[in-house]
Amino acid sequence: MRDGVPSTSAQSALRRLRRRPEAWLLAVILIVGTIFSLTARDFLSLPNIIDLLETYSVQAIMAMGLFVVLVSGGIDISFAATASVAQYCAALLASQLGLPAPLVILAGLAVGGILGCLNALLIHYVRITSIIATIAMMSVSFSLLMYFSGGKSIYTLPDWWTDRIVFWQTETESGDLVRITLPIVAMVVVTLFTWAWMTRSSAGRQLYAMGGNAEAARRIGINIGRLQFVAYGYLGLMAAIAGMLQAHRVGESVPNAMYNTELAVLSAAVLGGASLTGGIGTVPGVLLGIVLLAILQNGLNLLGVSSYFFQIVIGITILASTSLTVISSRRGRRHRILAEAPANG
């Protein structure tokens, strides 16, 4: 029933690879990386790379959560607000009540998870479009945070929270200290877990199925409601983790520190090939999206280009990469030549 030339599976595998946005993204990263390493001396140095990893760990963790929601066919704008609320609640418990670490962390995670589930509730039971529901939730939770906190930061975080946790360290030949710290380890763990969970577990595959065709998923007996709670709840948890890590890095809890990062994280996920219509995207792709934004910012910094210039670069990158992806995939499926029709009459 196949018309045209029978394709071997090696050929089709190659074709599939070429169509993957990850492949393009990797090529762009390599090119950009090469340019920076030739022009900015410190760019490829180990301390710089480790520093980069740590700086972007918070965003990467949120991106992993957002990725799951995007795959399920939804979108969430509220996760940065969720992260702030979870962080602040945990900080209050730690500084005002002096609760022990496990309880504080658990409470923070609970706040994040509950806010995520509230999104799922609005989307599944109240049937509000995900973008609208999460915008509304963002307004509500962030504004309430600002109202009740009065915008005041908490500087008195306990030592267990703010002390640097180093898992491994070494000194380079030039005498720089290289340390693998908690945020990096957390990012790696979250990324590996999300990747394994989404590709290898039943829930992960069901999320992909639901994002690909929600009606069909319902018909074959996938519990859509439960999956919504899983996806948005997972993002809530990731936001809480990211929020608490952010306070760990800066040593204080500032209620609006993470506000406005949602669009940057969304850009990274989309750059990495996560589709806004659901069902498509991979963990390595999303990670590459983060990496691209990170090295662009870092490289420009090292080159002494004003940090103000960075936004312009992000804008151009988003426009160029999304347009190119769509245009190249469109060329791929043009003109299905009829089997019987004489080709080139």
């Binding site: 290898r200 039943s202 992960g204 994002g211 065709n213 074959i220 069902g279």
Partner: peptide
């Protein structure tokens, strides 16, 4: 159904053996 109710983003094998992913959500596939 007339629209076939398939998952366009999944592979042939995943579509055909979709039932294998419907068990316990925590089970590996």
């Amino acid at each position: 159904f007339q629209d076939l109710s398939l998952f366009p983003n999944l592979s042939v094998a995943e579509n055909i053996a979709i039932d294998d992913t419907l068990q316990n959500m925590l089970m590996p596939v």
